[in-house]
Amino acid sequence: MNGDSLIQDRIAPAVTTSGGPSSPGPRRAPLIIEPGRTEKNYWRDLWRYRELFQVLAWRDLSVRYKQTVIGIAWAVLRPFLTMVIFTVIFGKVANLPAPGNVPYPLLVFAGMLPWQFFATSLSEASNSLISNANLISKVYFPRLIVPAATVVVGLVDFLISAAILAAMMLWYQFAPGWGVLLLPCFILLTFFASLGPGLWITALNVKYRDFRYVIPFLIQFGLYVSPVGFSSAVVREKFGDGLFMLYSLNPMVGVIDGFRWCLLGGECAIWWPGFAASIGVTAFFLWLGIRQFRKLERTFADFI
């Protein structure tokens, strides 16, 4: 380039006069952009963008119930009404047994709690990239933040539901055992159970919009397949251990059993082999979700 030396002369003063904090400073390791290159410090980048995560989560929360009349009461009303209906259908009409002396509404609500969290997180996460398309195509940030931030919305609904459960337990004068201390672990497990498939589907959703129709269907279906309205012990008694193992491949079986065990005490025992299977499936989906997401992430802006 023949104009090069000329340009150097012109810009040289600009560089030298700019002292102070705004000067280039010590040279850092360069950032290299290449096709197919996965970034070495992706996870550190994710940490650096934690404020964006907070802000996005806060945005989703604060606009969630804007322009609604009863606002946050929706988070109370939905699980409560579902619980009433399930108690009537499964407890009264189908007359399914509850283990020990657990009141049936508590059994249903303890299952409803993680299910709602799972369902909200999964559906919000899988639509998250599409609904943030304008961000994806205009700004860089680790895309993992978007689906992860939406899960926070589910978490808040979850906490509200948990408060209802606490009130119900007071009403029934039912004290949880020491297992309740392990509840945070199971909340984390639910989070991972929804994040894994959520990441995978949201990544696929960018390229193939078919998946946005899959999720509502899957959630509707899963509500009846998972032991939300009934105890998983019922299933095990009916089909035996072998088939129950298969049933436990639904990660929500392990999660819901775990929740009931935590909240309702010893009568809702966990069948550990099945629980291990659920955890295994959750871990697998989490691994698959993150892997697929990372793989497709670099092309999101081109397809969205």
Partner: peptide
């Protein structure tokens, strides 16, 4: 925002 098909960019 998007990755190149070929080539390389280095940013300091």
């Amino acid at each position: 925002i998007t990755e190149p098909t070929v080539g390389r960019v280095t940013l300091w």
